[in-house]
Write a protein that binds this DNA or RNA. Structure first.
Lengths: 188, 188, 188, 188
DNA sequence: TATGAATGAGAATTCATTCAT
DNA sequence: TATGAATGAATTCTCATTCAT
């Protein structure tokens, strides 16, 4: 009579924890032993859920991407006014900037580990999704959405490297104002 | 009368090579043996020039920072017209975007390795230098310079992660146009 | 349900083997690889049982000390006549002189490695135990016991360095005679 | 025109310093680099005076032995009364106990490094010299001299390992008294 | 004679992975 | 399914030794 466990639930618990550890220490600097300890399991158990260490990184990337997409869609859902959406998005970014820091670091680790097309591909989808989503959501051109995403990426990165100088909150406010003005102009 | 060598020259040759290797594989994924092979020396020699592996990262960061500052100052030197400077800076960025990719990756490795204040401090100076330099060079407010730097950081990062979507060249052109227009307006 | 092993038993098997290897080659001249080979394990396993190389030395010292105390006490146990005890002790020394050679060498390695108070402390207890034990066991003054122990130490050392000249057996016999005479005198 | 240096003098200076360093840290734990630094020379220079690291140990042993013999002979020279000699020898031991500690440690390092007959042979001469010298100097039997030397060795060793318990000075006094009494008896 | 830069073998230690229980 | 003991390759770093100057 085997023990009944929620396989996927445990897997995701482990991934969630890894997202944070990998981010702060770097994938390469975290040992399997450390992951086991931090997740309250054992090395043997980890190898039940994941093929090998790299597979954790791989699954983590897929998991986080999916989670992000879903969350974005759920957030926008049912909000029709562009102004409201803009409000929503800016407040969302303020609250989740740390998570996007993790994401960027994860992407870099992923790229360096896979060092090939797979990584690029994965992140490509990510970007494209957000560019199109923002373009549609905010009713702006794809070109403008690209610049917006680029800027947001810069925001995340600088807030990660030089939190003192680049206050993300502040800069998001400025951005919000800029976009709001642009919306108004568009309406006129 | 020991063997006479240009200690600093050798040191910098090694650092220069490490800048590129660390960037593509990540500091933690490059072994001392590999560095020795890539730089055409031996592990023993490396430890003659550097206290330990971390010291390579440390010295590399200092070296690159200094080199960057000097180059920027030399570039601007003797160019008085703001338009010309804008031209200069945009073309500079186009030519050196890869190097700034390396730099960002280095900064991340540095932060993760030192995992503390030291890293932040080093990068803080870097940012501050460029924000002030751009503010003065292009005759724009510090606030605008911050946004500009943030955007440039985003540019570097996206061109690194999704080179297909975010064409740095293209985006720099757009940015250039934006800044040029702003300058003109300022003149009027 | 991990693999079930008698952790302490394995640990002691390793220590027992190290006692002999360290003694003949010196702690510093024995590599972890060599210990692994000699004990029939692997380097990884050694680090499963010991924190690091120095920890082997440390645990070895503790282990040997404890083993020695217990053996001495068990030997004396139930023997009431002083003459019999003297007989017992001298024959014990004859049989275990090699082990005391190991012990002295271990103590020296320990002192040099720890190079501090810890080492002194450990050996201090050892000495004190034997001085008091001999004093009580043989019914002699502490001062005389000290001299006896000093002499025995000299015996072990010389038999180690110049086995040809200083025949331990012979010298123990002389010592035995001396002590026996002293006992008799005390009785009178 | 080559620099004129007193080759032997420098060599002995180095050996003297090594005697002390080896003693406290152990031959194996002292690197050539460390010897160079401690003696104010360079690794290259050391290899001018000594064939290799082991040769330092070898020459050191020979040097110390010779120095010891000469000193002993010079000390005894011209002192005819046995009582005076005894006085001389005990005070000599009190003053030089540390040096004999060094010597024992050196002998152990030597034995472990050579791990063969050479070492034994070297120390054999040492012992024999002292046994005979003491026998003649103090007018005691060789057997007694052997016991005396054994005891002295124990004294040196215990004062090294447990300086707190075994006060060498004190024990030498006791020994001195014992021997003095024996002398008197012999005279009667 | 004197220096210390250069070397690579070998040291201690860590790590992903396997496997008996 | 879960555990952690076992493994040995690979890592960082040290060291005796050589050699150009």
């Amino acid at each position: 009579m085997p023990k009944i466990v929620d396989h996927d639930h445990i897997r995701e618990k482990i991934l969630e924890r890894c997202f944070s550890i990998f981010s702060s220490k770097g994938y390469s600097n975290v040992s399997i032993r450390e992951i086991a300890k931090e997740t309250g399991t054992s090395t043997g158990t980890l190898y039940h859920y994941f093929k090998n260490k790299e597979d954790i990184l791989e699954q983590l990337f897929v998991y986080i991407r999916k989670k992000n997409f879903n969350r974005y869609l759920k957030m926008i859902e049912g909000v029709d006014s562009v102004e409201e959406r803009l409000e929503l998005i800016t407040s969302f970014w303020k609250n989740h900037i740390e998570e996007y820091q993790h994401l960027i670091l994860l992407a870099i680790d992923y790229k360096r580990t896979k060092s090939g097309e797979d990584a690029i591909h994965g992140f490509h989808d990510f970007m494209e999704f957000y560019i199109n989503a923002l373009s549609e959501t905010l009713n702006i051109s794809v070109q403008t959405a690209k610049m917006l995403v680029t800027y947001l990426m810069g925001l995340v990165l600088t807030s990660l490297l030089v939190p003192g100088i680049m206050k993300a909150d502040e800069q998001i406010n400025v951005l919000h104002e800029l976009l709001r003005l642009q919306q108004e102009e568009g309406i006129k």
